[in-house]
């Protein structure tokens, strides 16, 4: 990352970014590995120079929290859908008590 403009080096033409690109090119010419170059940059500029956080310690949260959030959201959504679909099934009505049943029969008989 460009330390002054906080974009990736390939997107930045800031003087600081240009110097870092030059440093990386120099180290590649000297056959330094990607790991070595990254370590040297971190030693020089701190971990914020990396575009992605390392896979260790508290930085792991940056990798796993979004996944946990997505999974949690999906579970909540699934639970909500399940509850909604259950609430739409009409429950069977309880049978009428014999007295009311007889009264209904009487009324119906009057109409017929």
């Amino acid at each position: 990352m460009c330390p002054t403009c906080h974009t990736t080096l390939d997107q930045s033409d800031a003087p600081a970014a240009q110097r870092i690109k030059h440093f990386i090119a120099q180290r590649i010419d000297q056959c330094a590995t990607a790991g070595q170059i990254k370590s040297e940059l971190v030693a020089n500029f701190g971990a914020a120079i990396l575009a992605a956080p390392p896979h260790k310690g508290l930085d792991l949260l940056a990798w796993w929290l979004p996944i946990a959030g997505l999974l949690g959201g999906a579970l909540l959504l699934a639970f909500g859908v399940w509850r909604w679909s259950r609430s739409r099934v009409p429950e069977p009505e309880p049978p009428l008590d014999p007295e009311t049943d007889a009264r209904v029969d009487e009324v119906l008989a009057e109409w017929e």
Binding site: R19, F23, N44
Partner: peptide, 13 residues
């Protein structure tokens, strides 16, 4: 005392 602070720089530079 004069004290320089080399800001956001490559050490060699």
């Amino acid at each position: 005392v004069f004290l320089g602070v080399d800001y956001h720089d490559v050490t060699g530079d």
